[in-house]
Nucleic acid binder design. Structure first.
Length: 684
DNA sequence: TAGTCCGAGTTTTTT
DNA sequence: ACTCGGACTA
């Protein structure tokens, strides 16, 4: 019997071969973690290409750009690299964007629309919010909450009132005001030709359902393949159904045990209902795990065994067992950070590259202390998840200028740009918008540079030099046909230089980011393409672009569990396995939320090939710094029940005795707090 | 316009 | 415990 240790490019097990060899017609693949899903999907694409399906008639929808690129690269190795590159592959949002640029006009969409990222959308929501009188009362939801509610309505396609009672009960009394704000928000986007992330899906779904445009769209593809189907939402399922209605084949791959995007309105119903929605669908289950050792899988299975809703898959592996998973009890967070460093470096000594190890955690800030410690010990690392490159304010400044060039009526971009200048705040900026002919619209045909020069006299004297420089830079970028995107960035960067130096604390790192952006821009043919792709597929990593200069160097991977989806490493270090951190105590309100946290924990565990280390800090300080040492003792995560703990070796870091000095959960207040309370009592 | 002070609500994960 | 928004002042 052939026993593949890893799924080699040509070596597939019988179930995988059935997937690859499946003819036309709908197909659902239920693929447990580590069962060779990526290879199988890649082999299927390769098989389609070999069968003579033309690459541009294949649509491959994945969760991230990276996943699509990797699958197509593997498919290229199996079939023909040149043709695999012509396959339509990417995220729902990126593919929607691409299709809408070409076919959106038929829906009345201006082909020059701009795409708002999450924080732009929130800003626009905030603008509308501030204009609504009723929104001033206390407890009125903030702009981010407003966007979250709006987005949930859009993605679930359920009435506002239901969404409020279900997910945002504390906002239910404001339903009428919310409806008014959302109405204005939608109107504002329409007037300024802006599409937010949700719109990319909604317009695509609308277009695909349209009797005329929809036929044309559906006619573009013979095969539709969707990865991570358990994390799609209602609108995405509608898109798949509509796009596949003329296709020879539609295939969805997913694992209900790995559904972790409920907060983004993803619904497991999609994968469960696939056979009903696509009649005659074949269902193939992949259960043999090629990634992890049996003892890692035992932990994963034990975690899921506690789920009230049964997932009737048991992962198994033929791999030999070598190391038992390790549960590390740490005195506190600081000890955890150094214990992780120690273990990472010990593995490194044994020959496991840093790149083959990952540190995973629930929330982006959970790695803060570790990052300091890694820096101190000079261990190179890259972090995924959390604050993105694009969200740093200097990058948004530069992007705002690009967006003005692209869409001269983009109110938000103007608002941001104007305030860059010394002496221009919200009040002046708002006044200038009218003179610029942006809101209300005027002077059709006049360029951004002209408009800016025209209002110069109305700006404070202190702002004129900087605004003048910006206007010149905008003018220099104006001729899209002759000025390369890279040169445009160079121009804008020069004008921003003094502003960045004046307004940011450590300007050099930020100016360096501009340089990186300039290099990045060389890969794009047009400014519009650059801006859109940057928004839809921002560079990962933090601070600087952890790009080419690091490539030859070995580095440790730090990642949120969400961002680690689809990844695998020889050694996985999972931080903060304490109740309150994982599961996050923000997500323990409703049973569904806890179940999603459990699946998230399962995803984290199943990323490990050979070594699994789970760290549990016993003591959490309430204040990071300060004189008093108020802290509490944590409890081990509820996802590791007693039965599961027998699967681990136990280690202790920074602890004289393995037991906590007081019962878990008790709060002790340190000396400093007692002193200050005594002082308080003096004048009470 | 921008800085300071005060009070109150909120907290995470991502395209 | 921290951040955001509003009010008030220079």
């Amino acid at each position: 019997m052939p026993t593949p240790t890893a799924v080699a490019d040509v070596e597939l097990n019988p179930a995988q071969r059935r997937v690859v060899g499946h003819g036309d017609g709908p197909l659902l693949v239920v693929a447990g973690a580590g069962t060779g899903k990526t290879n199988t999907l890649a082999a299927r694409v390769a098989a389609l290409l070999t069968r003579g399906v033309s690459p541009e008639r294949i649509l491959l929808l994945t969760f991230t750009r990276r996943a699509a690129a990797e699958m197509l690269q593997r498919a290229g190795r199996l079939a023909d690299p040149a043709s695999s590159r012509r396959v339509w592959g990417g995220t729902f949002h990126a593919m929607g964007h691409r299709l809408l640029r070409v076919h959106g006009a038929a829906l009345g969409l201006d082909p020059g629309f701009s795409v708002l990222d999450q924080s732009d959308a929130a800003d626009l929501m905030g603008l509308v919010r501030s204009e609504q009188a009723a929104s001033t009362h206390t407890r009125f939801p903030r702009q981010d909450t407003l966007l979250a509610i709006y987005s949930r309505v859009a993605n679930t396609q359920r009435p506002l009132r239901d969404v409020l009672t279900d997910a945002f009960p504390w906002c239910a009394t404001d339903a009428a005001t919310l409806a008014a704000i959302f109405g204005e928000y939608v109107e504002r986007k329409r007037a300024q030709e802006l599409l937010d992330f949700d719109d990319l899906l909604l317009f695509w779904a609308r277009a695909a359902a349209d009797p005329c445009v929809g036929e044309r769209l559906a006619g573009l593809f013979d095969h539709v393949l969707v990865d991570e189907y358990q994390d799609t939402n209602t609108v995405q399922a509608e898109i798949v159904q509509a796009m596949a209605r003329r296709a020879a084949g539609v295939m969805a791959v997913g694992d209900d045990a790995q559904a972790i995007y409920g907060f983004r309105a993803a619904t497991v119903r999609n994968i469960l209902d696939f056979p009903a929605v696509h009649p005659g669908a074949a269902v193939i289950t992949l259960e043999e795990n090629y990634r992890s050792t049996p003892s890692v899988l035992a932990v994963a299975n034990a975690v899921m065994a506690e789920a009230p809703e049964r997932h009737d898959k048991q992962l198994w592996s033929r791999r030999p067992d070598r190391h038992r998973p390790c549960l590390v009890h740490c005195a506190d967070e600081t000890t955890q950070a150094s214990a992780v460093c120690d273990t990472v470096l010990a593995h490194h000594q044994e020959g496991v590259r840093l790149q083959d190890q990952a540190v995973l955690f629930r929330a982006a800030h959970h790695s803060d202390l570790l990052e300091v410690e890694l820096g101190r010990r000079k261990v190179p690392f890259v972090k995924y998840g959390g604050l993105r490159f694009l969200e740093s304010s200097h990058i948004k400044d530069l992007l705002a200028l690009l967006r003005i060039l692209d869409n001269v009526y983009d109110e938000l971009a103007w608002f941001r740009t104007l305030r860059l200048a010394d002496g221009v705040g919200p009040a002046t900026a708002r006044r200038l918008l009218a003179s610029l002919g942006v809101r209300p619209r005027a002077d059709a045909g006049s360029t951004s540079a002209d408009r800016l020069r025209h209002v110069m006299a109305q700006t404070p004297r202190s702002a004129r030099a900087e605004l003048g420089a910006l206007a010149e830079a905008l003018a220099a970028c104006g001729d899209e046909a002759h000025v390369e995107p890279r040169e445009q960035i160079a121009q804008l960067r020069r004008a921003l230089d003094p502003i960045v130096r004046r307004s940011y604390h450590r300007p050099d790192a930020r100016l360096h980011d501009f340089e990186e952006l300039e290099h990045l821009a060389a890969a794009y043919r047009s400014r519009g393409q650059l801006v859109a792709e940057l928004v839809l597929d921002p560079p990962a990593g933090t601070g600087d672009l952890a790009g080419p200069p690091l490539l030859d160097e070995d580095y440790l991977v730090l990642s949120t569990v969400h961002s680690a989806k689809g990844g695998e490493w020889d050694a996985v270090h999972l931080l903060h396995a304490a109740d309150g951190m994982f599961p996050s105590d923000l997500a323990t309100g409703r049973p569904e939320e806890i179940e999603e946290e459990r699946r998230l924990f399962y995803v984290a565990v199943t990323r490990a090939r050979d070594h699994l280390h789970i760290y549990f800090p016993l003591r959490y300080y309430h204040r990071r710094s300060g004189l008093d040492d108020a802290h509490h003792y944590a409890q081990l995560t509820r996802f590791l029940p007693d039965a599961a703990r027998d699967l681990f070796d136990t280690r202790h870091a920074g602890l004289a005795s393995p037991e906590p000095p007081v019962a878990p959960g008790t709060v002790r207040v340190g000396v400093g707090a007692e002193v200050s309370r005594a002082l308080q009592d003096l004048w009470r």
